[in-house]
């Protein structure tokens, strides 16, 4: 290939990347697993079979899955508006979308308490109607939505900007409806970015500690998520249990990546099959749209 770096440079760059990731990612992960298995395999599994640990895992998964569709829908909406159109206050809007990143997680929790807590803005009304938001599931879902809000949008905006709008405009001018254009043109173009965004949001949703901790109430077996469970176990001098739970979180994050790899693989196979079937047509298409 003419456009590849010389071999020495490839090797050097790969070495730098791997060294950096090893130092900052692999080593901490190894340390977590080392601590988790410090008491042997049986202690590790005993810690996970604990009913409180199981309920924490269930709750964590539930919240992560629940917030996912919201993030995808609103992420695509925001990215569509921002990347494909010009309007006043666009920078402001992008900044507002970024805002949840910049707010300290502890402050996020505090902010929701100021609104929904017993002493908060709507506290009186909520308690009069016996609606529980904070220290119950709705509050935990809300803060998770807040902290994961930017991921999908932020992942899609630069990608969609880089892609421009020629393809979509072409689709529309050829008579496609908005929905057809989205499904046939936009979605295939952004699928990887969308997937990365979802994976990040998902990982963050499962791993979040600070904000959730403020609104959870820490009721065992009821509002304790896995990250909260980890901290409690650690504070109780149960390091094995704490790090075992932490390693489960790390593994859960990897599961989404495995899913991504599978999807990627499947798609490649499909396109390869399509390519062989529709080869002449595809060549025509490609040469038919000069840029």
């Amino acid at each position: 290939m003419a456009n590849a770096e010389p071999r020495w440079l490839r090797y050097t760059l790969t070495a730098i990347a791997l060294a950096f990731l090893f130092l900052f990612l692999a080593l901490p992960l190894l340390a977590v697993f080392a601590e988790a298995f410090a008491g042997g395999g049986s202690a590790f599994f005993a810690a996970l079979a604990d009913p409180e640990a199981l309920s924490a895992i269930g709750l964590t998964l539930f919240i992560a899955i629940f917030v996912l569709p919201f993030n995808v829908a609103i992420g695509i909406c925001a990215a569509w508006a921002i990347a494909k159109f010009d309007f006043r206050g666009k920078s402001l809007l992008i900044t507002l979308i970024d805002l949840p990143f910049a707010v300290s997680p502890v402050v996020v929790g505090l902010v929701f308490l100021l609104i929904f807590g017993a002493q908060g803005l709507f506290g009186q009304w909520l308690s009069a109607h016996d609606i529980k938001i904070v220290f119950a599931l709705p509050g935990m879902v809300l803060v998770t939505l807040f902290i994961t809000f930017p991921f999908v949008a932020r992942e899609l905006i630069p990608l969609m900007q880089a892609q421009g709008k020629d393809e979509e405009e072409a689709a529309i001018s050829l008579g496609a409806t908005g929905w057809q254009m989205f499904l046939r043109v936009t979605l295939p173009n952004i699928k990887w970015g969308l997937l990365y965004g979802v994976i990040l949001a998902n990982a963050r949703a499962m791993g979040e500690f600070g904000a959730v901790s403020v609104v959870s109430g820490h009721i065992r077996g009821q509002t304790n998520t896995l990250p909260l469970h980890v901290e409690i176990l650690y504070n109780e001098y149960n390091a094995v249990g704490a790090f075992a739970s932490a390693s489960v979180l790390a593994l859960l994050a990897l599961v989404t990546l495995v899913a991504k790899t599978l999807v990627e693989w499947q798609m490649r196979r499909e396109t390869e099959m399509l390519d062989t079937a529709l080869l002449p047509e595809k060549v025509n298409q490609e040469s038919g749209i000069p840029s």
Partner: peptide, 16 residues
């Protein structure tokens, strides 16, 4: 429910 003492008390004041 277990967590840091002051944090717990704030939670109770806020409706836990």
């Amino acid at each position: 429910s277990h967590a840091g003492s002051s944090k717990q008390v704030r939670a109770v004041a806020d409706g836990l």
